[in-house]
């Protein structure tokens, strides 16, 4: 399994994402924002950080990077794509996922270990989890409030496209406590919390995040 991990200027979590791929017995393939091809990878991770300094809006400039045009095309053909934190913001700006991420409702940057419930364990990235499993992984973001209009929210809920929901107090004002969503096909997933930081109890609060990368392994092997 070869998994591309994109680095934009200002990306922070590409190295941890690559490490998570290795923990799932995959081969991480570094992709640069200026690349015009995906080097034959089986899947792509758009990691967290502050691409292009979060100028204009989070993800608004990264969405137009050359490598993203390749990602958009591949995602629309069914390639598994995971956006974490800033990666989720980029996928939303790229219209691969609906809605938008906005400033946390209490304006503070939130950095803590966060309980999530797994609402959909049928996506390319979540099959290793039990239905309604609760997992503990880090959340660290200032603009993680998920917003969408009522019709979009209804569609997400009716079609079971909410993948993760915050458990307990809503950390950032996200509508319906949404922490992560998927597209209609289930190959593209975006979430604000960081599964790549929770793959080994030595370096994270748990290893609960590893399931996402092992799920991808299952998806790729099956394909």
């Amino acid at each position: 399994m070869r998994v591309g991990v994109i680095t934009f200027p200002g990306t922070l979590d590409d190295v941890d994402a690559q490490r998570a791929v290795r923990y799932a017995d995959g081969e991480p393939v570094p992709l640069w924002h200026g690349d015009h091809d995906l080097k034959g990878v089986d899947a792509v991770i758009v990691p967290g950080g502050f691409s292009y300094g979060d100028y204009l809006r989070c993800g608004a400039i990264a969405r137009f990077a050359p490598v993203m045009q390749e990602v958009i095309e591949a995602a629309n053909k069914g390639m598994p794509v995971l956006g974490i934190c800033n990666g989720f913001q980029i996928l939303a700006e790229a219209h691969l996922l609906p809605g938008a991420l906005t400033r946390n409702h209490k304006l503070h940057f939130v950095c803590r270990d966060q309980w999530l419930s797994v609402e959909n364990n049928t996506t390319a990235w979540t099959t290793r989890y039990d239905a309604k499993a609760e997992i503990l992984i880090p959340l660290k973001s200032g603009e993680g409030g998920y917003q969408a209009d009522e019709d979009t929210l209804k569609e997400l809920e009716d079609d079971n496209r909410v993948v993760f929901r915050y458990v307990g107090e809503n950390p950032n004002g996200s509508r319906n406590n949404i922490a992560g969503i998927t597209n209609a096909r289930g190959n593209v997933v975006g979430l604000m919390p960081h599964p790549e930081h929770a793959i080994d109890a030595l370096t994270g609060p748990t290893d609960d995040g590893l399931g996402m990368f092992l799920s991808l392994l299952d998806t790729v092997v099956k394909a």
């Binding site: 946390n104 409702h105 209490k106």
Partner: peptide, 10 residues
């Protein structure tokens, strides 16, 4: 108008 504007509120 329907989107929360926490910066404006602050």
């Amino acid at each position: 108008p329907e989107i929360l504007d926490p910066q404006g509120q602050a």
